[in-house]
Amino acid sequence: MYTNKNITLNIGVTLVSILFFMMIVSLFWTPYPPNELHTSDRLVSPNGQYWFGTDNFGRDILSRIMEASQTAFLIGISTLAIAFTGGLIIGGTSGYFGGVVDEILMRIIDALLAIPGLLLAIMLITIFHTGLWNTVLAIGVMGIPTFARVIRSGFLQIKNNDYVTASRLKGASHLWLIRQHILPNVMTPIIVVSTLYFSSAILAESALSFLGLGVQEPDASWGRMINEARPYLATAPWYILISGGFIIMLVLGFNLIGDGLRHHNESKR
């Protein structure tokens, strides 16, 4: 059983590592400048010169896929930061203090949860206009309720343990208690949620970019590449397959890591 779960984790880590390595390489080198037009080589199928072919502007698809991996990781990490911070503040306060504070904050979270995530993101983008950082903000806000719930339930569980009560009796401050005793004990579920959130953030960015609301031209994004490839589905199928394939790789990778970690933790108990 145990090794079986580990395989899931290993595949996930391998997939994400490959893409992470590609992202690091792209910071220093891509086969062609990602936005360079080769207008005489439009929609060329994959060959020795252009490994993944070219798009309708004659831009090298491999270079753009590499460039777009930066966007994917950037979106994943920065939305995670927003969702985690927001979730920690709301969920932490709520779970730690309980009572009326808990009631009020949780009802706000309930209200947020009632709005479909993508719809909320589209609303925020309509208000603040499109662009990379507004996309990050929108997707980040979308994730706050999930994190707030997980962190709150973790806090509720840990704060009544005897060792926490003991520390409190010794006169420990709230912040010290949270930092020393509670947070380290709720990190495990948070990490699992984070990996799963990472992949849904990337999916959300792809969906927004597909709708034309995410990252803007000419910056590369996998979701927008799918959108751009759509008219050429019949004439240049490799374009859409490659862009979609990379989204699947990264999302699958993070999901496998998340699942693997969860089973790993469960079997440890």
């Binding site: 799963l196 999916l203 799918i226 589905l233 859409i240 999302v251 699942d259």
Partner: peptide, 19 residues
């Protein structure tokens, strides 16, 4: 299950290309 949902979403995303 969650994984299945994610995979489903990915396939939906690509599925929109098939009118």
């Amino acid at each position: 299950m969650k994984k299945m949902i994610k995979l489903f979403t990915v396939s939906m995303l690509i599925g929109t290309t098939v009118a």
